[in-house]
Structures are given as C-alpha cells and as structure tokens.
Amino acid sequence: MNDRKKGNLYGLTLTELRNLVKNLGEPEYRGNQLFEWMYTHRIHNLQAMTNLGQSLRDHLSNEYRIQVIDISKVDESTDGTKKYLYPISTATYVESAYIPETDRKTLCVSTQGGCKMACLFCMTARQGLQTQLSAGEILGQYAGIPESLDITHIVYMGMGEPLDNTEEVLKSIEGFTEGYGLSSKRITVSTIGILPGLSRLLEETEVNVAISLHSPFAEERKRLMPVQSVYPFESVLELLKKYDFSRRKLSFEYILFDGINDTADHAQELVRLLNPLRCRINLLHFHPIPNSPLSGTPRKRIEEFQAYLKSKGLIATVRKSRGEDIQAACGLLSTKELVRRPLAETLDY
C-alpha cells in the first residue's frame, strides 16, 4: 500500500493502541510495547520493534505508518528562540516556538490551525478556525524538531484555544507524560476559560493551568475577549476555587495594553480578585499586530504595575518578550503565510 494511504499510528494513546492490537487478534500488552517503542524509545520504524513478533510487525507495516508532521520552515531569532512552521493541510499552517533559557528549554505548541474565539488582540484569531489538530499533530511539534531531547517544559500557548479541542489535547498530554516521560508539573495549558474543557483538564490531568485574563472588569474583558459573554470570568473563578493548587500551578496571563488595562483601578481589582487564590500573575508585553486599536504599555509602566501587585502580596512576574525579530507571538508567522477566509458565497452576512 502507498505509505500516504496507511493509517498513522503516531499520536494514538495507550488505550487506543491496546484496542488496535486486540482487534488484530493480538494480546493487549502488545499495545504497551508499541506505545513504548513509539514514544519512550522514539522508534518510528515498525520493523525495528523487535519484541513485537515478525507477523505483527509485517501486518502493522502493511497497514500503518508512524509519521510525525513535517516542518516546512524554521526561523531563528537573535536570542536563540526558534519558530517552526508546519503545513497541516494544503492551505493551513501551524507554528510552534522553541524558547531556550539558561534553566529551562520550553516548547510552545499549537492546538488548532487558526481559532474561533476572536480575541481582539490576537493574530491567530484573524484566520478563523481552519482545523483542529490531532494529538499526533500536537505531539509531533515536540518529537519532530532537532531540539526535542533538550526540551524541559511544554506550554500549550501557541495557535488556537486548547480547550476548544479538549479531547485531542488530553490525549496529547497523555503522550507527553506517559509516553515521553515529561512530568505534568512541567506542562502548562493556557486557556481563555472554556468551562467544560477546563473542568475536564482539572479533573483528568495534573498539569498546570494558565488563564488568559487581560482585564479584571467584565465589561472591558468582553470587548477584548468575546468569550466573556459566554463564560464570564466569575464563573471561571468559581470553578478554580474548588481545586487545590498546592501541587499544580495556577497562573493568570495579563497582556498590558497602553491606557486600557494598565491603570491603578485595574491593579487594585486584580489584587481583589486574585488574592484569595494560590496563584501567580504573568504580565506580558503586547506584540503589536497590524491594524489593531491596541498598543503595548511601555516597559517602565509594566514594572510599576508589577511593583504594585507585589506590594499587595500577589506573585507577579513580567514575562520576557522573546523572538520579536522573527515574529514569535502566537499566530503572526502563520497568518503572514496565510489568511484564508470563507468564500463570499458561503456567508450569511
């Protein structure tokens, strides 16, 4: 069979692999062996999986392949950040960013091609949703790059809203932890607060959670993030308060927009909202995007904002802006490659 027509085993979970071999009349533990070869040993050649037995290897090789997504482009920043671009279909690209720092090497992965959520400050939003990534396409952003073995941390902060693709995100977390042996403590999923997915993430995994907040005031947050009309932040807080964050980290992401959400009132309200929680707040510099009504707060004022939050007992960090020379902000690169929108004749407006 032509290789492209074969089913891709890459990205399947342990349970899925056990079921697959069982359906082939093999004992289920063969699924565990396949899982270990593919992820723990990073062997993608089925014939090299010597403890599987020749007939199973032949059968699997005839029907299946193990294919990690291809990289179509890589850009390296002067600060060492690397941006990878992957073609997912003929017209959709996703990106990941490898961010080396002295004490950690982080990979920022994407979970969707484009996104439906229409946040005002986001470049990915401008693509709309093009495609959902499979667990294999998420894991492949890790396994397929030359720095893979050096990576210490995974953050789900690339293109897309992870909890609008919860099932595949949960499978990929299983792949990272059970397969590649990364600790849940080193994985962070960032979300704008899609409640059903957040409940599952909190119940079914032990990974860290980062919530995109960007304004403590409901009406203002609505203008920045339409999700606020659907899942108000107060409901997100209510849910978070039911969980223990002593063994996993909870953080809030806060991009500072000049003259918009960087006032003393904002700082005070953040303290009021977040102080009851065991959490940290990450203050982020805004990467400017074309034709946006927003601009970034100058560095000095970000530091003043941070100092106020700290003086009131919040753990507040300013995240360094990385890879600006290669447009490492979420979605900038792939949106430059492609802005594909629905055809006019399919629209209802």
């Binding site: 229409a118 005002l120 939003a125 339409p226 034709n291 929108r341 209802d348």
Partner: peptide, 14 residues
C-alpha cells in the same frame, strides 16, 4: 453570529 462575521464587522467598525 459566526467567527468570520464578528471578525469582518469588527474590522470594518474599527
């Protein structure tokens, strides 16, 4: 409405 409508109209209004 749909994401594409929100995006197009918001761009236009801005």
């Amino acid at each position: 409405g749909s994401t594409s409508m929100i995006l197009d109209l918001r761009d236009l209004l801005l």
